[in-house]
């Protein structure tokens, strides 16, 4: 690639929200490894179920993203144009494409392939981690959009407390303090798989172990997040309610986290979080979360990787109730 083209691409990337705040000279290194893909209307950029090969940034044109439904029907869930990003989740997480992307106009897409990005990450390149943080912010935003669409599919309006009062969520400091389970158990849970014993001990010492009974509201839709909760035992559910209807977006069992999306992007919670089973939760306060999420220590990387994995999983899992509602097989009121 010529220096001029790399400069132009870097300048273009600097205007893409995903790369905001990253100096243009650092983006040149990213631009050099990106390959341009030209599409005519009707051409498929990638198909649902294909192995994900990386992230695409749309330089020009218009594409539609569709998901197959049971049977032979398809659901269009997004249209994207210049500056929009596709496949940021698989860039971090790999896996299979969750939808098919098809060009509606002549389109140019820039591909950042996974092996090239992995090479940047393995060098602990600050640009790679800056991109990762941005991807997680974008993923939080995607998650909000998915939640909003789920709310629309349910119908009705978002719940509001009578008189506009702030809902009373459980304060971790007011909850009974729990006993730390055997670390050998905890370190086998998904959230802690990149933790060593020292990193885990540090996290526990700066957090609170809370025992919460079933059915306790720990975060209400529309309220700001103050705590990241990691389930050690039991289960917590993320729920969207509209009138008498509700849908569970995700069940967070042992080793899965919730409540942190607002700590990443500063927005109010897009859903409510309630304990489904009695639970033992590790409550990580906002300040500690911020330090770990943005830090550069071994503990920070372990925590960052855990949040990254959790958020990627949350994004995938949010598609399940969406597909169910779209297929008109929504849960009816409780049986008992």
């Amino acid at each position: 690639m010529s220096e001029t083209l790399a400069d132009d691409r870097a300048a273009f990337l600097a205007g893409v929200p995903l790369f905001a705040g990253i100096p243009v000279n650092e983006l040149e290194e990213v631009a050099r490894v990106m390959a341009a893909v030209e599409l005519e209307p009707g051409d498929v950029l990638f198909g649902q179920g294909e192995e994900a090969d990386g992230l695409h940034v749309l330089e020009r044109g218009l594409v539609q993203a569709c998901r197959r439904l049971p049977g032979e029907s398809e659901l269009e869930y997004a249209r994207l144009g210049p500056g929009d990003v596709l496949g940021e989740i698989p860039l971090l997480d790999g896996g299979l494409r969750s939808g098919t992307v098809r060009a509606l106009e002549p389109t140019t897409a820039l591909l950042l392939a996974r092996p090239d990005f992995t090479a940047l990450v393995s060098r602990l390149h600050p640009t790679a981690f800056a991109i990762k943080r941005q991807i997680l912010r974008l993923a939080s935003s995607r998650l909000r959009i998915t939640h909003a669409r789920l709310g629309e599919l349910l119908g009705g309006v978002a719940p509001a407390a009578p008189g506009g009062e702030k809902p009373r969520d459980a304060d971790p400091e007011d909850l009974p303090e729990g006993r730390l389970p055997d670390p050998a158990y905890v370190l086998r849970l998904p959230f802690f798989r990149s933790f060593g014993q020292p990193e885990f001990t540090q996290l526990v010492e700066s957090s609170r172990l809370a025992v919460v009974s079933a059915g306790c509201a720990i975060l209400s839709e529309g309220t700001p997040a103050t705590t990241c909760y990691v389930t050690l035992n039991g289960a917590v559910e993320e729920v969207i309610r509209r009138g008498d209807e509700s849908v569970r977006v995700r069940l967070c069992g042992p080793g899965w986290a919730c409540g942190y999306a607002g700590l990443i992007d500063g927005q109010a919670s897009s859903l409510s979080v309630v304990t489904r089973e009695r639970a033992l939760l590790l409550a990580v306060p906002a300040g500690r979360f911020d330090t770990l999420f943005n830090g550069g220590t071994i503990s920070s990387y372990a925590f960052f990787n855990a949040i990254e994995h959790d958020l990627m999983t949350a994004l995938r899992q949010a598609q399940a109730p969406h597909a169910r509602l779209a297929a008109r097989a929504s849960p009816s009121p409780r049986r008992s």
Partner: peptide, 10 residues
């Protein structure tokens, strides 16, 4: 992709 996951507790 042609299958739907039943919700937990259903």
């Amino acid at each position: 992709s042609r299958w739907l996951e039943a919700p937990e507790y259903s």
